[in-house]
Design a protein around this nucleic acid. Structure first.
Lengths: 149, 149
DNA sequence: TCTTGACTTAAAGTTAACTCTAAATTGTAT
DNA sequence: ATACAATTTAGAGTTAACTTTAAGTCAAGA
């Protein structure tokens, strides 16, 4: 019913080193130890770890996650702080998702551009994208012409 | 028609220090200098910088962006590499966006949970979310009860 | 001309999040 | 019983991406 640090690491896609590091940073105040000092992770511990990973994935730093755990341990007096924190994270996450969407559009343009360039041996790039090529000539020198950017 | 490093930094939302760092790392091989050594950024340079920022924003490391710039300078022989690179980035970006979407759902749940807890003074948390509270009791000790997690 | 603020380079310092090492201990499979 | 693999700790090392410092140079206004 309990997992060793190695098993827990495998389940979470992390390393045992990383789990010990998290523990040292106060992110795992709940993990039990055997009488001889070995850590024992329960399924509930892994669920908590999943929340830690979620917070980390949305851009929270480890010290901020520690703050959240501290708030949890302080009791109901910190409910509002925790709510505010999640609201801030949500706004951050929304902006990040919008940014990634814009990046995706740029990348899609690049892929279309290069697929065409590869297919046509890049022979008519100048016609298709004169602006980019002229810019490129200025940047990399006049010798390189008709080339995708 | 040209910008100083400070003006360019301001336009891009970066610092002059960062632009010099990028230059040192080979990310700005196109930026001109005056006879006395001052960098001069053109509008085209800023467009290139925007592409660099896009690549950085999708998770590319600076050395990988350098690789892309090197490929651009090598000419048409590297068209396929560049296409493959953008395709890899697109896959990475897609996975990242899916992950963020899942994080967003978790955060929305947390916000709903804490808004309710704050509104009701957390008096009936045990009824609403017995599993979480029981888990919390095990983790933080029996003394703290009826508290949001 | 003088001052002041922006710029230059090279190099050292910082920060976050691991990542690894060493030396000892523990658990498990023959 | 004896390997051998996994675990423990403290602490050192790594990496990426800045960030700051030092010592000087350049450019524009009074």
């Amino acid at each position: 019913m309990g997992y060793s640090i190695g098993q827990a690491a495998e389940k979470m896609g992390l390393t045992a080193h990383t789990l010990r590091y998290y523990d040292k940073e106060g992110l795992l105040p709940f993990v039990r130890k055997t009488s001889s000092g070995l850590r024992v992770f329960s399924d509930a511990d892994l669920e908590w770890l999943a929340i830690v990973e979620c917070l980390k994935g949305t851009g929270l730093q480890i010290k901020d996650i520690k703050q959240y755990i501290d708030w949890c341990q302080e009791g109901n007096a910190t409910l509002q702080q925790r709510l505010d924190m999640f609201k801030r994270q949500k706004e951050k996450l929304k902006k990040e998702m919008e940014k990634l969407q814009q990046h995706m559009e740029k990348i899609n343009f690049k892929i279309a551009y290069y697929e065409d360039a590869v297919a046509h041996g890049d022979t008519n790039v100048f016609d298709r994208n004169a602006k980019l090529v002229m810019e490129k000539e200025r940047i990399f020198g006049k010798k390189i012409k008709k080339q995708a950017v």
